[in-house]
């Protein structure tokens, strides 16, 4: 029998999701035995035209990581969508926009100015910026367009399943692979992970007092944190109350607070707003001035509350001045 065909692709991502596939260790051999990988730019030399020549729907599943920032990414994911039975958004960036989508508080112009002119390590006296088309002796060269707004995968193509995490942990990847190979699929649109919040599964929850109260917010590098106590109790922002569990508490076990990479649970539409609500509940004062000064100690609310989910939140980006 012919093995099911599988494709991998990366958009705006850091490469960690690709490594997550390798983190399957010996299990990757089982995967390679069971499927036929037909496209994987980071590992194999297949070209886009190879995919173009395939029949529509003939790829069993495409795992796509990264957010969509460039026209090229949009083009390839549209192609993969057409050729694939299933599309899985792999990792936080494809799922919700992730870290690359924090650039949604800026735009193309500002980003180009910063990257090609203002950074101290760049000297660009002629103010040369990347152009989509450049005429040279050899002919016209083309670069993909760079969008103002970064999008999660499902704002570009229809997505069947989501594998959350930055990057997704090996056990969840294997769970998804098994489900697909055995045809035991969850309902379309499912996030393949628990629907509990991280606090519900976190070991440190036991140490939480009945009424959590904080008067001061601290950043993780400012103190030597206790490795058993709930982070929030120590005044350290931990996104556990607003984040989906299933990660195996990797950060918490490494004595780092949760930053929210698994996104919110199914019933929540705005992870950042949800966390804001949880945090506001435990601030231990009703005095307006004091509340204000506590709020002021958090330097970057979007970056803290929406670190991974900005592009999939209701507002999705910052409004730029007209």
């Amino acid at each position: 029998m012919e093995k099911p065909k599988v494709g991998f692709y990366w958009c705006a991502s850091c490469g960690g999701c690709e490594e997550a596939v390798l983190d399957l260790n010996e299990d990757i051999l089982k995967v390679v035995d069971a499927v036929d990988i037909i496209f994987w730019p980071v590992a194999f030399d297949f070209k886009k035209k190879d995919v173009e020549s395939m029949e529509d729907g003939s790829i069993a599943v495409s795992f796509i990581n990264g957010a969509v920032r460039l026209s090229e990414q949009e083009e390839v994911v549209e192609l993969l969508r057409k050729k694939s039975g299933l599309v899985v958004a792999f990792g936080s960036c494809a799922h919700m926009g992730g870290i690359p989508a924090l650039a949604n508080i800026s735009n193309k112009n500002e980003i180009f100015k910063r990257a090609y002119k203002k950074v101290p390590s760049v000297v660009n006296l002629e103010e040369i910026y990347p152009q989509e088309k450049v005429k040279l002796d050899v002919g016209e060269l083309e670069l993909p367009s760079f969008y103002n707004t970064v999008k999660p995968l499902d704002r570009v193509v229809d997505v069947d399943y989501y594998l959350p995490g930055c990057p997704p942990p090996p056990d969840l990847i294997m769970k998804a692979v098994h489900a697909i190979l055995e045809g035991k699929l969850p309902p379309k649109g499912a996030v393949i992970a628990s629907d509990k919040t991280l606090c519900e599964t976190c070991e440190r929850n036991k140490t939480k007092p009945d009424k959590l109260k904080i008067k001061e917010m601290k950043r993780i590098f400012e103190i030597v944190s206790d490795d058993e106590k709930c982070f929030l109790e120590q005044g350290i922002i931990c996104l556990g109350p607003a984040t989906r569990s299933g990660c195996g508490e990797r950060c918490i076990k490494g004595n780092m607070p949760c930053r929210g990479c698994f996104g919110p649970t199914d019933s929540v539409i705005d992870q950042g707003a949800k966390f804001l609500s949880a945090l506001a509940s435990i601030i231990d004062t009703n005095e307006q001035g004091e509340i204000q000064s506590i709020v002021e100690t958090i330097p970057d609310l979007i970056g803290t509350f929406y670190r991974f989910s900005l592009a999939s939140s209701p507002l999705k980006r910052k409004k730029l001045k007209a």
Binding site: I283, Q292, L301, K318, K319
Partner: peptide, 29 residues
């Protein structure tokens, strides 16, 4: 403040409101 039917509800609102104000400012609202 002090009159909320559920005693504490509007104090919670005050705390959220301060944080929301700052957050919305970051969104350009």
């Amino acid at each position: 403040p002090g009159d909320c039917h559920y005693k504490e509800g509007n104090y919670k609102t005050i705390r959220r409101y301060s944080m929301m104000k700052k957050l919305l400012g970051e969104f350009g609202i």
